[in-house]
Simulated scan of single mutants.
Amino acid sequence: MEQKKEFMLMFRYEPSFDYQPTAAEMDEMHQQWGAFIGNIAIQEKLVSTHQLGFEGKQISADHSVISGIYISEKQILAGNMIVKANSLDEAVEIAKDCPILSMGGTVEVRNIQPM
């Protein structure tokens, strides 16, 4: 039996500081994320998952430091998940159920290579 490989799913979305979800909408989002993560865990494919905050600093090659998080194409990296799958295509199929997609966000799936 082939050993499963690990893949990182990176969740990105465009934040809207003009709109704040209601408590009911937040509850629904938490339920969707719980179901998504729980389904992967039940299949024994979940390795880890992390939600990222909005505080951060960036360090440049010249060692200068600026406050703030990196925003690319108006999107921020919201979190990540590491899953086990037989192939990149299988990891992509897992990612297709991610709730961030219904929010207009994206999921990038990358293979993980040991260092």
Rank of each mutant, 00 (worst) to 15 (best):
F36C: 12
K84S: 10
L77T: 01
M1C: 12
N111K: 12
I112C: 06
Q75K: 12
K96I: 01
I69F: 03
Y70A: 11
R110I: 08
S60N: 08
K45G: 04
I82D: 03
C98A: 02
S48V: 07
A91R: 01
I112F: 03
Q43G: 06
I112L: 08
N39G: 15
I69C: 04
G68H: 07
K84H: 12
S48W: 06
F7N: 03
L52I: 05
Q32T: 13
M1T: 10
A61Y: 05
M26G: 12
K84G: 08
I76P: 05
I37Q: 14
K5R: 02
I59R: 07
F36Y: 14
A24E: 15
V109L: 02
H63V: 02
M1H: 13
L88A: 04
Y70H: 07
G68F: 06
Q113I: 14
A35H: 15
I71R: 01
I42F: 11
P21N: 13
D62P: 04
E14L: 02
K96T: 01
K4N: 08
K84N: 09
E14M: 08
S60E: 08
F11G: 05
S48T: 09
P21G: 14
K84A: 11
V92S: 03
G105A: 01
I59T: 09
I69L: 05
S72C: 07
H63S: 01
R12M: 08
V109S: 03
L77V: 00
M103P: 10
L88I: 05
K74P: 00
K84V: 07
H30Q: 15
R110G: 07
N80S: 10
I100D: 01
E2L: 09
N111Q: 13
M115R: 15
C98E: 02
I42Y: 09
P21E: 14
E28I: 04
Q51R: 13
I71S: 03
A61M: 06
K5T: 02
S64M: 13
S72W: 00
Q3K: 08
I100E: 03
S48L: 08
S67P: 13
M8L: 11
S16K: 11
Y70L: 09
